[in-house]
C-alpha cells in the first residue's frame, strides 16, 4: 500500500470510528430512560475516546518519533485546562452548595 492510500485509509478509519462513537453517545439517550448515571458515563467516555480518535487520525498526534517535546505542548495544555476548568467547577460548585 503506498503512502497516499495509507493516509487516506487513516482518515477513513478516523471518520468511521468517530461516527460509531457519535452514534453510541446519541444512543445512550435511550439508556437514559432507565439509568441516567450510566447514560452520562457512556456519553462522557465516548466523547473522550472520540477526541482521542480525532487527535490520532485527523490531527496525526502520536507518541512516537523524535519531536516528543512538541507533544508536551498539547499535554501541558490539557493540564492547564484541567486546572482552570476543574478549579472553576470546584469553586463555583462549592459556593452554590453553601448558598442552598
Amino acid at each position: 500500500m503506498n503512502e497516499e492510500r495509507y493516509e487516506r485509509f487513516h482518515y477513513i478509519i478516523g471518520a468511521t470510528a468517530s461516527a460509531i462513537l457519535t452514534v453510541l453517545a446519541f444512543g445512550a439517550m435511550i439508556i437514559g430512560e432507565w439509568d441516567r448515571t450510566l447514560a452520562l458515563w457512556v456519553i462522557g467516555v465516548s466523547a473522550v475516546v472520540q477526541i482521542v480518535v480525532q487527535l490520532r487520525f485527523f490531527l496525526h498526534i502520536d507518541f512516537s518519533r523524535q519531536k516528543r517535546e512538541d507533544l508536551l505542548l498539547i499535554l501541558f495544555s490539557l493540564l492547564m485546562l484541567t486546572m482552570l476548568a476543574g478549579g472553576t467547577i470546584w469553586i463555583l460548585g462549592d459556593l452554590s452548595k453553601r448558598m442552598m
Binding site: 496525526h60 518519533r65 523524535q66 519531536k67 505542548l73
Partner: peptide
C-alpha cells in the same frame, strides 16, 4: 521526521 505536532 515530523517538524511540529500534527499534520506535516
Amino acid at each position: 521526521p515530523k517538524l511540529h505536532p500534527g499534520l506535516n
